[in-house]
Write a protein that binds this DNA or RNA. Structure first.
Length: 470
RNA sequence: GGCGCUAUCGUCUAGAGGCCUAGGACACAGCCCUCUCAAGGCUGGUACACGGGUUCGAAUCCCGUUAGCGCUACCA
């Protein structure tokens, strides 16, 4: 029987590069083994889910060329099955009703807080006498359904980590059904994965601690357990979980920056997976042939934009100029350059091997069309100067900007940090920062300064400075 | 705090006991080429977290320490 895998994002945000990579691994595995990829949208958290987010995720996957065989299925549509499964557990004595209110639970948490034990529900409602349960039910008291976590070892053979083991008594009696009868994540996932006959669960490392709970649920429900493969997280350059502060994290951001889907796919595949040896640039077919769960890395990987751009350049150089024409034309329009009467294909051919993105190709084509042009001499000098300063001071800029929290990410703070860093290093960053300063303080951006911005703005993180995300 | 995961150049990684005075790629530095260029060529520096074992031999196996990360909801 061919494997059945699934990608199960929750539509509470954009398609994050980490999610995209998880989808990619599932896709590669399905393609390689002749299996089936199910796309399931986990929208049980109705507060945070939205149709718009679902669409963005679907678009992102399509852009990356990740196709699914079944779905998209919406978890919200399976509420009845989830409830039925919870009921089965309840009737089998493997789950129980809990009448504790949130306030009572909070109070219990406060008691154990500060102690050396973790908070675990004390099962007081499990000890309720049957007739008391009946009377509270008759009274109409709201209740949730809790899973009675079995004691003893719960272990599984993880396809990337090897054997992972937890003790049942370290795990809480998790709530599986809310007071309104809707399911909680862990139940919904297990119920769905069983119903959809998923054989391999390939997902992020952050789910490792959910897995023993889910394994216990599989056993209680009498269903065979799938193979679990937990892939490592993707981190920002500071070793922290990748977030907006690190620059672009949504797949759509890279689409906007002129990254090719094939390059993104190749890059993402290599983040946490290696075919062994020195292979790096791989076609879709090579990737699917070479892919294996054993080749997945155990440690988290840092997302390196510079390497992504380099890889994009490799794909760009190999692409036929004809395929580049439309996107380059679009980019030229944005730059306000008229390519009428020019042999655009020849121009693209001339610059594509030394470019990294479509944006870069268009910029170089623009220079060739306009020539050295009528720009003023002062501006030229500044451009040259900034080019050098840019490379040299990039590290310093990172140093200046990375400590900023999301809340501090505004023009004033950025400007203050840049200035302070320049001063603390006793370096003449002033010239290099001039265009940024002008842009940030809302001053008039003159023509030469626009050129400077184009140079500086090539670094994604800095582009966000001059063109703040809406 | 508890539980769990992880640990090779700055980064992505190769490496499954001797092939390792640790290889490749990105980045970086220098030189060359060059009307521009983040293209190309050459050269260079930088890594097995630490401490104990096991073994004739350990980056590779075991234990401990340290550090990082994840989870610890009627979120997913």
């Amino acid at each position: 029987m061919p494997p059945r895998v699934r990608f199960a994002p929750s539509p509470t945000g954009y398609l994050h590069v980490g999610g995209a990579r998880t989808a990619l691994f599932n896709w590669l595995y399905a393609r390689q083994t002749g299996g089936v990829l199910v796309l399931r949208i986990e929208d049980t958290d109705r507060e945070r889910s939205s149709d718009a987010h679902t669409q963005v995720i679907l678009d992102g996957l399509s852009w990356l060329g990740i196709t699914w065989d079944e779905g998209p299925l919406f978890q919200g549509g399976f509420g009845q099955r989830h409830q039925a499964d919870a009921l089965r557990l309840l009737e089998a004595g493997k789950a129980y009703r809990c009448f504790c209110t949130r306030e009572e639970l909070d109070a219990q948490r406060r008691v154990t807080k500060g102690g050396r034990e973790a908070f675990r529900y004390d099962r007081r409602c499990h000890r309720l006498a049957p007739d008391e349960v009946q009377s509270r039910l008759a009274q109409g008291d709201p209740f949730v359904v809790r899973f009675l976590m079995p004691s003893g070892e719960i272990a599984w053979e993880d396809a990337v980590h090897g054997r992972i083991s937890f003790q049942g008594h370290d795990l809480d009696d998790l709530v599986i059904l809310r007071a309104d009868g809707t399911p909680i994540y862990n139940l919904a996932v297990v119920s769905d994965d069983i119903a959809m006959q998923i054989t391999h669960v390939i997902r992020g490392d952050d789910h490792i601690s959910n897995t023993p709970k889910q394994v216990a649920l599989y056993r209680a429900l009498g269903a065979p357990e799938p193979v679990f493969a937990h892939v490592p997280m993707i981190l920002g350059s500071d070793g922290k979980k990748l977030s907006k502060r690190h620059g672009a994290t949504a797949v759509g951001d890279y689409q906007d920056q002129g990254i090719f889907p094939a390059a993104m796919r190749n890059f993402l595949a290599l983040l946490g997976w290696s075919p062994g040896g020195d292979r790096e640039i791989m076609s879709e077919q090579e990737m699917t042939e070479l892919f294996s769960l054993e080749g997945i890395q155990r440690k988290p990987a840092v997302f390196d934009t510079a390497k992504l751009e380099w890889m994009n350049g490799q794909y760009l150089s190999a692409l036929d100029a004809e395929l580049l024409r439309v996107p380059v034309e679009r980019q030229l329009r944005i730059l306000g350059v008229n390519a009428e009467g020019r042999d655009l294909l020849a121009l693209i051919d001339a610059v594509k091997t030394r470019s990294r993105t479509i944006v870069h190709v268009a910029e170089q084509v623009a220079v060739r069309i306009q020539g050295p042009g009528p720009r003023d001499e002062k501006g030229d000098k500044l451009v040259a100067k900034l080019g050098d300063a840019y490379a040299r001071n990039l590290g310093l800029m990172r140093e200046a900007l990375e400590p900023l929290s999301d809340a501090e990410w505004n023009a004033e703070m950025i400007l203050a940090r840049l200035t302070a860093t320049a001063e603390s290093h006793a370096l003449k960053l002033g010239d290099a920062m001039q265009p940024i300063r002008v842009a940030l303080t809302g001053g008039t951006v003159s023509e030469p300064v626009n050129e400077l911005l184009a140079v500086v703005g090539r670094e994604a993180s800095l582009r966000r400075l001059v063109v703040p995300a809406p």
